Structures are given as structure tokens and as C-alpha cells.
Computed example of a mutant assay.
Amino acid sequence: MFYQQARRSFWRRHPVITGVAALVTFWWLANGWYEAVAVTAIVGLLLFVSRRRKALAIRDAGLRARADYEYRLSLRGDQRGVFGRYPPVQAGWFPDPQNRCQIRYFDGVMWTPHAVGR
């Protein structure tokens, strides 16, 4: 898998755990246990940073694998290796982006001034 789906945030995936953690934090603050709150926050931050680094390393490995795959395709002369997943749009008549009642000629690079009614 080269691309990952975006995940929802932790508190949206686990609302009960987040609520209990917030209640415990408020209870600790009300009782004056500031050191416990600080230690818990530091440990949580360290866990977040380590998991984020791991996720970025996995993403970068996937991107490197995709680039290597496309490079090997381009060496063989396959067009997928030249353009990647999204080949360029071919020239032709398409609906005009500014006027839906017309079609305009796209030359493969840019829109031309040639337009006709539908």
C-alpha cells in the first residue's frame, strides 16, 4: 500500500478514554498533584513523538518504494513510469470551465481560445 487513509484524531476514536483522562487530570489538579500531571503530560508527549516518527518513517519508506517502482518502469519505457499515477490529460474538446454552455479545446497543456456552443 503506497498511500494511507487519513485517520481521525484520538479523542474522536476513543471519547470514553479521553473523558476519563480529562476527569482524572482535573481531579489531580484539584488535589494539588501538579507533579503527577506534569509527568503524565511529558510521558504522553514522548509517546506521541515516537509514534509520529514511526508513522513518518513508514510513509517515507512507501514513497521511496513508489519512486523506485516508477523509476524502474521508466527505464523499461513504460509510460506509467514517466507520468506516475496521473498521466497528462490528452488533447480534445472538454466543457469550458468558465462557461458551461460551451465546449473549449484543450491542447494537452492549456486551454485554447477556440470554443463552440454545445
Rank of each mutant, 00 (worst) to 15 (best):
21 A>K: 04
22 A>P: 06
22 A>H: 08
22 A>I: 07
22 A>Q: 08
23 L>Y: 05
24 V>E: 02
25 T>E: 01
25 T>Q: 02
26 F>M: 14
26 F>P: 10
27 W>D: 01
27 W>S: 06
28 W>L: 03
28 W>S: 00
29 L>Q: 00
31 N>R: 14
31 N>F: 10
32 G>H: 00
32 G>Y: 01
33 W>M: 06
33 W>P: 04
33 W>T: 02
33 W>D: 08
34 Y>N: 05
34 Y>E: 02
36 A>T: 13
36 A>I: 05
38 A>W: 12
38 A>G: 08
38 A>F: 11
39 V>P: 13
40 T>I: 01
41 A>T: 13
41 A>Q: 07
41 A>V: 04
42 I>M: 09
42 I>W: 14
42 I>Q: 06
42 I>K: 10
43 V>W: 00
43 V>G: 01
44 G>P: 11
45 L>I: 03
45 L>E: 02
47 L>T: 05
48 F>S: 05
48 F>Q: 05
49 V>K: 07
49 V>D: 00
50 S>W: 12
50 S>L: 08
50 S>F: 11
51 R>Y: 11
51 R>V: 09
52 R>C: 00
52 R>T: 07
52 R>Q: 09
52 R>V: 00
53 R>K: 13
54 K>S: 12
54 K>M: 13
55 A>H: 10
55 A>S: 09
55 A>F: 05
55 A>D: 08
56 L>P: 07
57 A>K: 06
57 A>R: 10
58 I>K: 11
58 I>D: 12
59 R>M: 04
60 D>P: 10
60 D>W: 11
61 A>N: 09
63 L>G: 13
64 R>V: 00
66 R>M: 01
67 A>W: 06
67 A>C: 03
68 D>S: 13
69 Y>P: 03
69 Y>C: 00
69 Y>E: 05
70 E>N: 04
71 Y>C: 07
73 L>P: 14
73 L>D: 06
73 L>V: 04
74 S>L: 05
74 S>C: 05
75 L>I: 15
75 L>R: 14
76 R>I: 06
76 R>V: 06
76 R>G: 09
77 G>W: 15
78 D>T: 02
78 D>C: 00
78 D>A: 02
79 Q>F: 12
80 R>Y: 08
82 V>H: 13
82 V>W: 14
83 F>T: 07
84 G>V: 03
85 R>W: 14
86 Y>L: 13
87 P>I: 04
88 P>C: 03
89 V>E: 14
90 Q>P: 11
